[in-house]
Simulated assay, not measured.
Amino acid sequence: MPAVTIRNLSDEAHRALKVRAAQHGRSTEAEMRDILEAAVRPTHRVKLGTLLSAIGREAGLTEAELEPFDRLRGETPTAPMSFE
């Protein structure tokens, strides 16, 4: 797993990170990881099932025809593919 070093972080920013981490009940490192992941994660990502459902509606499928797909769609996210 990659590691990142942040240089020249001000004392004020470091203290604020420590306080924020304590408020969330985690380490400063875990807090920084969460902040970075939230900053680069797409906020309005269209999921494949939603996109396919919209395509079906545009193609003229009725709600009754789309219902089996909605019923089969899982609610839990799939695990990312591993290439190792």
Rank of each mutant, 00 (worst) to 15 (best):
L9W: 12
E67K: 10
A13G: 03
P80M: 07
L36K: 00
A30W: 00
T50E: 15
G74F: 07
T5A: 14
G56D: 11
T50V: 12
H14Y: 08
M1R: 11
G60M: 04
A54W: 04
A64F: 01
A22I: 07
R26L: 09
E58D: 11
A16M: 12
S53T: 15
G74Q: 13
S53A: 09
T28R: 06
P80T: 10
A79M: 11
S27C: 05
S82H: 09
V40L: 11
S27R: 05
A21C: 05
A3S: 14
M32R: 04
R57C: 03
A64G: 01
R33F: 04
K47H: 12
A64Q: 12
D70P: 00
E67C: 01
S27A: 06
A3D: 10
P42Y: 02
E58P: 00
V40C: 04
S53Q: 10
R26D: 00
E37D: 14
V4L: 10
N8D: 14
E84T: 14
A16I: 07
L61C: 00
E67L: 08
H24G: 07
A22S: 13
E67W: 04
G25T: 02
H24M: 09
T28G: 10
D11I: 08
K47L: 12
L48V: 12
E29H: 11
E63K: 05
E37C: 08
L51T: 01
E12S: 14
E58C: 01
A64S: 09
A79Y: 08
T78G: 13
L51K: 08
I35Q: 09
L66A: 12
A54T: 09
K18F: 00
L17T: 04
R33L: 15
L66M: 15
P2M: 02
L51F: 08
R45V: 05
R26W: 01
E75V: 11
S82L: 09
I35N: 03
L36Y: 05
K47W: 07
R71F: 04
R26E: 10
M81V: 15
T5M: 11
D70E: 14
T50I: 08
E58M: 02
I55Y: 06
H24R: 14
T62D: 08
S27H: 02
D11W: 01
A30S: 10
S27M: 01
P68I: 05
L61Y: 03
L36H: 00
A39S: 13
L52W: 09
E58G: 04
A30T: 07
V19C: 08
T78N: 10
A39H: 06
M32H: 02
S82C: 05
E58S: 03
E29G: 12
R41W: 00
G56A: 12
E75T: 14
E29Y: 05
L61R: 01
V40G: 05
L66G: 07
M32E: 03
G74T: 14
M32T: 12
R45Y: 04
E29N: 15
P80L: 09
D11V: 10
G74L: 11
V46N: 06
V4S: 02
A22Y: 02
I6T: 08
E31W: 02
R45T: 03
N8K: 11
G56W: 06
P77H: 06
E31P: 01
L17Q: 13
L9P: 05
F69A: 14
P77R: 09
P68Q: 05
A16H: 08
R45I: 04
S27I: 03
R57S: 12
R20H: 02
E67Y: 01
E67R: 09
R15Y: 04
F69R: 09
